[in-house]
Computed example of a mutant assay.
Amino acid sequence: MSARQMKLGLFLWATGHHIAAWRHPDAHVTAGIDIDHYIMLVRTAEAAKFDMVFCEDAAGLREANVQIASQTSRSIGFEPISLLSALAVQTQRIGLVSTASTSYNEPYGLARMFASLDNLSGGRAGWNLVTSASPIEAANFGSTGLRPHADRYERAREFATVVTGLWRRRASGHDGLSFSVRDPLDIVPSPQGAPVMVQAGASDDGKDLAARTADVVFSAAQTLEEAKAFYDDLKGRLAAYGRQPDDIKIMPGVAPIVAATKAEAQAKYDALQELIPDDVGVALLSSYLSISDLWRYPIDGPLPELPESEGMKSRQALVIEQARRDGLSIRQLARYFAGARGH
């Protein structure tokens, strides 16, 4: 039987993925705006033979309450394409993947931006396509509110068609429901031909879009059964789009706590958990559940029944399932998800 090689990616969060890690005495608090720190992280990942680094993005503060936003590690940082362009000239082999939203960009501009990064890096760029699920972001772009989930994905499907057409240098333009594009891109293809397409949606719409377009899919699951069900579902959708199961790589997220012994690792994790203010933990949980008034429920009581969201449907379902399966209170659930956000 032939050997199979594991693909490794680093979710690049300057002060650590744990929402309270920046408060640890050993943390580099201003790492999010320290380019030398980012260079050190990415060079370390490259030396360790990682395949990619990944920068997520949101075009706005992550929490509606500014006081709470000031207590998290998510409120300061570089625009990711600018950051990855700087990192491209400091590395040789590692892939450089960034989130960019189909809701708050236009296809031609985004295609040109990623094609430029792809050339600057010698063919190492990737685009993580998201539709954006936060009303906070919507308010920064003159929108009257968050678009319905189905509408966001309808726009995303056409958006992806336009972008991939531009990267493949199709001669004819595009005139569709949401977009009209006349010219080809003013930049040549990179050594890899076009940026890698990445997706992370786990709703039916998200999995369908991934089956159409993605080379890589990021996933979150709390049990092996959940992970296998997601894997089988997504791989089973590929044939409808003329694709083979191996055309997509699925990369599940994990948040490792590393130490010399299990006891030391547990102590490190417990110390990080103690740094989470309850209001920050509940605010983060509220954002994943797309509910603004979670605080009105007893924090040591069970998660209430919630209506289906127009936000992050798949992550909302994962959070609710975890709460019901393990009998977690709101406080316990908030602390659990503050550590790894569902991974």
Rank of each mutant, 00 (worst) to 15 (best):
A59N: 15
L12E: 09
R324M: 03
P304N: 05
G193A: 06
G311V: 04
V29N: 06
V217M: 10
I94Q: 11
G342P: 01
P25F: 10
G173M: 09
P80F: 06
E226R: 06
A210L: 09
Q67F: 07
R170G: 11
Q332M: 02
Y231N: 13
A156G: 08
H24N: 13
G123A: 01
N119K: 04
A259S: 03
I94M: 10
I299G: 09
F114D: 02
K249Y: 07
V130K: 11
M312K: 08
I330R: 05
M1Q: 14
P277W: 01
Q5G: 04
D204F: 12
G122W: 02
A210Q: 07
V163K: 11
G342S: 00
Q266W: 00
D34T: 01
K49I: 01
F159S: 07
Y38N: 06
V66Q: 13
G95F: 04
A214I: 09
I248R: 04
A211T: 02
Q222P: 00
V198N: 13
Q90F: 00
A200T: 12
L120F: 01
S180T: 15
A214W: 03
I76V: 13
L110Y: 02
S219A: 14
Y269N: 07
L8P: 03
R170H: 12
I257N: 03
S286E: 00
Q244V: 08
L328G: 03
V53R: 13
P307L: 04
D57Q: 11
S132Q: 07
V196F: 07
S290C: 03
F114W: 12
M197V: 15
S143Y: 14
